[in-house]
Computed example of a mutant assay.
Amino acid sequence: MASSSSSVFSPLLPPLRLPASCGARSSAPPQAGPGSADNANAVAASAASRPAAPLAVASHRREVLLGTAALGALFLRTPLPAEAREVVVGKFLPPVPSSPGFVFFKASTKDTPALRAGNVQPYEFILPPTWKQTRVANILSGNYCQPKCAEPWVEVKFEDDRQGKVQVVASPLIRLTNRPNATIEDIGSPEKLMASLGPFVTGNTLEPEEILETTVEKIGDQTYYSYVLETPLALTGSHNLAKATAKGNTVVLFVASASDKQWQSSQKILKAMVDSFQV
């Protein structure tokens, strides 16, 4: 009988050549005796009707498992999507010609679940090229409740160990007013808005006396409330700057936070970032 061989192919591993002996199960030769010719024919027929050798099946399964493991390792090495990059933003964001030392970020539907659902309009701001975009935990991202979230969620986060951090917080309008498509003026004064959203600035609580300064600014048809906060007990940092506006069914709040040490050297940078925020 001619020898046979089999090959199992995986796209991530080289082909495995099985030895010829694996093509069929070996057996001892039949003993000579009466009816030996009939016995030989019976043995040959039995061998031909046997299922594929289990060794080849086992080898195939082993190849599949190894290939799957290699594919998993490949995915682990694949770069993270834009919304989860933990690399300096200067590597993927364009510089701002009018503001040397800054790069430009404009959120698109690729960045967050709320933007894809149409609950938030695209927003933009500038930041230093050395900052990093960080992951937003799923429970904070609003991913689980789109398109109808009852509580505020975090859109994006960026930070720098030496200068501070910023985040964009979005709140459904219905949480602040029953009036659909309300402007930020319809919601109330800057102090009233911050009384509702303050915990999302500080990470815990906000007292009225921690609001040092408020400003109302009109950019086109959009009104913005800006804040300077001194928050010694805040989880986000003892210094916070914020800027908020309402558009569509959402209030969007941009927050820049710093510790005392960070604030000494970065307050001008953080203020430039907050001033640049627009929806």
Rank of each mutant, 00 (worst) to 15 (best):
D160E: 10
Q278T: 13
Y144S: 11
Q146F: 02
E191I: 15
G164S: 04
L176H: 03
L76D: 11
K148D: 08
P54L: 10
P51N: 10
T134N: 10
A84E: 04
I126F: 03
K110F: 06
D38S: 05
S21L: 07
P232E: 01
V228W: 14
L206E: 01
S276M: 05
R77C: 12
K271P: 00
A69C: 09
E151Y: 15
I184P: 01
R135G: 14
M273D: 10
S21D: 02
F277S: 14
F125S: 06
T205D: 12
K192M: 05
I187N: 04
Y224P: 07
S266C: 08
S7L: 11
T214N: 08
Y224H: 10
R135N: 06
T215I: 08
K110H: 14
G203R: 07
A53F: 00
V8E: 02
P34N: 04
V64F: 08
S10F: 03
T214F: 07
S266A: 15
A48N: 05
I126K: 08
A73G: 12
P14Q: 02
Y144H: 12
I219P: 02
R62A: 14
T231M: 03
V251D: 00
S4H: 08
G101F: 05
T214M: 09
N119Y: 00
E83T: 04
F158G: 04
R50I: 01
A70H: 10
W263S: 09
T177H: 03
W263P: 00
C149Q: 06
E217I: 15
P97V: 11
S3M: 11
G33S: 01
S6C: 07
F125H: 12
L74A: 10
V169E: 01
P147C: 08
L197K: 11
T109G: 09
I269H: 02
E63L: 12
V120F: 00
A45I: 08
V89M: 06
F104L: 09
A45Y: 00
P34G: 14
I139K: 07
S189H: 05
A114L: 08
R50T: 10
I269L: 11
E83I: 03
V96R: 06
E86V: 13
L127C: 01
L80D: 06
F277R: 14
P128F: 08
G33M: 00
A28S: 13
V168G: 09
S21K: 08
L13G: 13
S265C: 01
F92A: 05
R85T: 07
N181Y: 12
G237M: 01
T250W: 01
L16D: 03
P19V: 12
A37W: 03
L65G: 12
V43T: 11
N240G: 02
H60D: 06
W153K: 08
K157V: 13
P11T: 12
N39I: 01
L253E: 09
L93I: 09
Q133R: 15
R135K: 11
L176R: 11
M194T: 15
V103P: 04
L229Y: 05
V252D: 01
T112D: 10
